[in-house]
Nucleic acid binder design. Structure first.
Lengths: 190, 190, 190, 190
DNA sequence: GATGAATGAGTGTTCATTCAT
DNA sequence: CATGAATGAACACTCATTCAT
């Protein structure tokens, strides 16, 4: 597994996402992904140990991109509510701009491959948000409950609303995004 | 002539859920499910037209069970908030009692098979809840926003919280359930 | 294998011919034939020992029908040429009236099942024709060559001409039938 | 990278013919053919898209060989009758030398796969013969009847005579071949 | 006598992965 | 480094036949 050609690396990443989006996780085969990437199945094995490694690294790649986008613009100098709003909006932006990445993530995290992931490494990527929550609790701005509960109301509703399979009538406009943020904030604020 | 065996029907249902939970949707094969159910793969085809039919009918079966449990105890005579609380608690109960059904559902709805189901038939099962939301809005008890937004805050947080893969620290106790319901209610109430 | 219901016997015969014509010899399965006949696959085994027996008896049945029709009207009192013409015309008539029987026969005789047939029993059905040939040779009306050669020119051209897969432009009209008979007769006559 | 192996291609062709001859068209399975060819069933799919493609290309291959042999030695300079005699003899030669190819052809053309082939491409291979017939008619040497009728008397009797299943007593000797050709010629000549 | 349920053995085909070039 | 050929194992599914009723 020597790494040579970054272009092929990228092509494989995009091909994996594309194929999984087109035909689903179960039907996505190594050779279909290789064909979509324009390389031989054998070449794929130069870049990835096996199928699992391909999928896992694709997932981690997406999570990395996601964390970069989601954390953009939050700052200790901003009021906490505004930071939360930024995260909320960034998340929506990501789901709109990269629906394929988003959909791949969902499929992956419901698969058994998810067990192979080092969850702590992922948590680390989103640490600033965990800290934001902790600060809010300390400053008695948001409710003093389990972090999981706060998360369940501040991130996952986005995932639901942005999923057109689940929410057929919801449209991602600025008004709707702000409106739904209000509900999220009402949920967690003191 | 032997008669079609209800026990086998049930065994196939349970086997499908079990196998999908154990090895994931993508790796679940007809022969593994048949083996788990204790029948020949060929026998499976006496009860289901094909793999898709097996998975779809398993999903619908679960949704039917879910709707029965979730709607239990809600009533027009109860204050709206109490009805919502019932739904909230029932949902938690279901996820605790039948984690396998619950996990199967998630895997299924993220698969391409989900496109094959009649969404309207599912919506019909949960109509009383849609009506509950509409009443709450009319009576100016809950916010006048898209039903999808309300749903995203009143159902899906349960799914997140009950998913031990996502929420490792959250424990389903009466206190936690009531606490999290308070957040949900704060989100949607006027 | 007790025989009870002649109607079912017939239904199975017709169903076998129909199914083989519709989907070909290779794809014709016992259960499809049973369904076409309106009986259970198990019932089929009351009337036939196994699949081979079903196909063989269907073939023999067709040959019996064929011999009845083909021999109609030939007589020792008729001039030999006229008897041959009768056979020729009868054969055409059969292929036009019962194309399905005809097509089944062709498929069967090219299959390995044909080896199970008692060829002598078949030959017996068409003995009058063999005798006709022998008479013609004796009376120095037709050429003194191997019976097989005579047959190859007096029967098989019909099979070819009547097969729309092989002869797309040939139309079975009285004129064409008589015209082609002339060729056959020219071939074998002294 | 290994290179596609012409030997394997050929082995598959021969194996297909052999298996079909041994057990018949209906019972010939991909795995049996692969085993006969000494390759894995999966390998077969490197050389052919699917079973149909394997059978169709085998058939076309045979027809190509046949046309090469059959047309050998016919020429515009030869008297028409002699050209016909050449075709007649070539055809016998082919059936004697390659009885398996010949039998495969018959089985194939009676199967539903026959519908998948491009008949025009086949006709093209044998065009010189069609032209020969047309010339004969123009020169008033052979009867002015439908080409199909001429063909039915000049080619198919060979097929019948060469088929030992149909003609048990006929032996392919020069005398017999010339004798039977005389019948064919008598049939079509003016 | 008649039936649909039941099945081991088989179907055509695709899989993840390795090999030889 | 890159490749298409190669494959054992698995896939979804159907088969001819038997069994219990």
């Amino acid at each position: 597994m020597r790494i040579k050609d970054e272009e092929k690396q990228d092509a494989l990443f995009e091909a994996t996402v594309t194929v999984v989006n087109q035909i689903g996780f179960a039907s996505s085969s190594v050779s279909k992904i290789a064909k979509e990437a324009g390389v031989s199945p054998a070449t794929l094995y130069t870049y990835h140990k096996n199928k699992e490694d391909l999928l896992v690294s694709t997932y981690l790649n997406i999570k990395r991109k996601l964390s970069t986008i989601v954390l953009e613009g939050i700052s200790e100098e901003l009021p906490i509510k505004d930071s939360f709003r930024r995260v909320w909006c960034n998340l929506f932006q990501f789901t709109v701009k990269y629906p394929n990445y988003f959909h791949f993530s969902e499929q992956f995290s419901n698969s058994p491959y998810n067990g192979q992931i080092n969850q702590k490494a992922i948590d680390k990527m989103f640490m600033p948000i965990a800290q934001l929550i902790r600060q809010g609790i300390e400053q008695k701005i948001i409710k003093d409950v389990d972090v999981d509960i706060i998360s369940a109301f501040i991130f996952y509703p986005v995932i639901i609303l942005a999923n057109p399979r689940l929410c057929k009538t919801f449209i991602v406009t600025d008004v709707q995004v702000e409106q739904s943020f209000q509900l999220a904030w009402d949920a967690i604020k003191r």
